[in-house]
Nucleic acid binder design. Sequence first.
RNA 1: GGUCCGUUCGUCUAGGGGUUAGGACAGUAGAUUUUCAUUCUACCAACAGGGGUUCGAUUCCCCUACGGACUACCA
Length: 518
Amino acid sequence: MEREVRVRFAPSPTGPLHIGGVRTALYNYLFARKMGGKMLLRIEDTDQNRFVPGAEDYIRQSLEWCGIVLDESPWNEGPHAPYRQSERKPMYMQYALQLVESGHAYYAFDTPEELDAMRARLTAAKVPNPQYNAITRAQMRNSLTLPEDEVKQLLDAGTAYVIRLKVPRKEEVRFNDMIRGWVVVHSSSIDDKVLMKSDGMPTYHLANIVDDHLMEITHVIRGEEWLPSAPLHVLLYRYFGWESTMPQFAHLPLLLKPDGTGKLSKRDGDRLGFPVFPLEWHGTDAETGEPTVSSGYRESGYLPDAFINFLAFLGWNPGSQQELFSMDELIQEFSIERVSKSPARFDQNKVRWYNEQYLRAKPDGELAGYLLESLQAQGQTDVSTEKAEQIAALVKERATFPADLAREAQLFFQRPGSYDEQVVSKKWNAQVAGALAAFAQQLPAATDTSPDAIKALLTQVVEGLGMKLGQVLQALRVAVTGAAAGPDLMAIMSILGVQETAERINVALEQLNSYTAA
RNA sequence: GGUCCGUUCGUCUAGGGGUUAGGACAGUAGAUUUUCAUUCUACCAACAGGGGUUCGAUUCCCCUACGGACUACCA
């Protein structure tokens, strides 16, 4: 019988989730939906020292903004609650003890100082890989080297201890990664990982395996940084006797910094001037304790669909030439097999391009909504929906972000404060001014105020004076908007209205009088 | 240092034993436009290197180089 596909996203609440994490969540989500399975979120907060207030909420909001829907999570519990490892704390010890009893794990009493000393000794002896392992554990203080009664005494006395996995000395550990194929690691390169910490909390490794098993996870899709510890996890499944239901692994390629080398880190955003976080994050500097702000895609004006589309293509592609995919289409097309092995570098140009595509594809009504919102924020409250829609339709081709709409729309609400000097000095003269004056005089009487009609009127006036349209257009634009460039002039005048347009022309005529005389 | 992973245009990538090595972003040029932008068209641009295997390798294998991850009582 086929098991229902169940995947998990397991972030630790140590700060804001960066886009690499979001992509991991996205791929999990796409895979789960594609396979008709479930996706859950589990908070991996077994390190109490690294807990950051607000991080969990940030993760939740980020995923919501992205449109990644969780079937089970700490805030929407399912059959395997609780979904925070700190709340699952009581259940881990029994599993660690199970391993101790079966001889696959042991108690270790070494202090941090002793561990440091051991590493220093091995490093000095030029041991290639200093670690607590099948060889070195014989020199350490643990239940393998100490007499049984002494171990009992230490435990009874409440001495601090950890439980370590007893990794075999010589054994090949292999697993079939869905993205990378067979990965083989020799057990001698794996150390005796701590399973239970002295504070009674499990480490990531133990908690992860126990929870994935209990939560019936079928596929573990996570970042490449976990690849080196995957063989250890395989060992754990084996020793627990859970090998037959061990999840399949898929290790995703890393996301690299746009410049230089190395994986994208939380600090790169501010350094490079683009967001690495989905949402803005207010944190505190680890060293100075000063409040910090890291920019987010949402606040920078990115549309969630565009952001997701872009992110999906960083390390995956459908094999077709199609670039634009809705979430539903992504789900339809997604497959782990098409995830690439090699890391991907971040491309700011492409995210912007995606955003433009998504912005322009939106219905004018929705764009008008964005526009109205920004206008209201700057005190411009008397704009009708109808007018906003006209303006949005006209300026959307010039916008990358919703906020650009309002910027481009300014000319409709503010008369020119100055006139582009280049155009004035080149195009403005007595003849042109005369034509504009004539146009301004006739304009208010126009009954048809469509762009086409205005253009016809203008043509008629200009040609009636023996001139060509091209001679006056730039001057007219400057007179009406003050700028040398902008959206279609006829459309601008139409939206502005004949009265306002005529007045603006007359104001310009007065202001630029000196040029006319010259 | 050790272990593991990776390497096709500047970037994201398709492809795969015989191809003009395809697309997208960026860049450049041209067309359209009253202007800028948009749009359209064209151009530029890549199989890391060396050995094999093969009639033939960018594709399969090995080595080298380069890049990266991991190497905690962090996840």
